[in-house]
């Protein structure tokens, strides 16, 4: 019984993974592609992990626990990764695809860029001071 469920979960999980990969190719820009890869691939992989775990129920409990833990970590980290990729893509100037209908992030991205520039300037200033003091010592 459990094995049947596990095999079904394997199949469905694989199907979601494949759809995620198709989405990666067919959707227009970074942001839409990140959508396909975070959603479909995360759920697909989680299902495969849970299915693997189901094979451990009854005899091989460590297998069950390990795969469930992996699933939990995957669910917690995948969205963070997608968020980081999309945010940095936008801040570094990757445009939205032409089909996009709205963009509310422009202003905020400008602020972030200004902050980054300020920080970079500060670092450069500090470096220059260090160089100067080293020269003075020499």
């Amino acid at each position: 019984m459990l094995e049947t469920i596990a095999l079904w979960l394997f199949g469905i999980g694989l199907a979601f993974d494949v759809l995620g990969c198709i989405g990666l190719v067919r959707l227009p820009d970074v942001y839409n592609r990140a959508q396909a890869s975070t959603k479909c691939v995360t759920l697909g992989t989680t299902m495969i992990l849970v299915a693997t775990g189901l094979f451990g129920v009854g005899g091989n409990w460590p297998l069950f626990i390990k795969s469930i833990l992996c699933a939990v970590f995957l669910l917690m980290t995948a969205p963070v990764g997608a968020h980081a990729i999309c945010r940095s893509a936008y801040v570094s100037g990757v445009k939205l695809a032409d089909v996009s209908v709205e963009d509310a992030f422009t202003q905020r991205a400008r602020t972030i860029r200004a902050e980054h520039r300020q920080r970079a300037d500060e670092i450069e200033k500090n470096l220059r001071e260090v160089e100067k003091s080293e020269e003075a010592e020499a």
Binding site: F16, G20, I22, P28, Q35, K39, C40, F105
Partner: peptide, 20 residues
Amino acid sequence: NLDVAIRVIHPDVPIRPGIV
């Protein structure tokens, strides 16, 4: 997932993306 999957395999890729 089903929603995104349908959009992905639909021949016209019916999306209306944007940042809100």
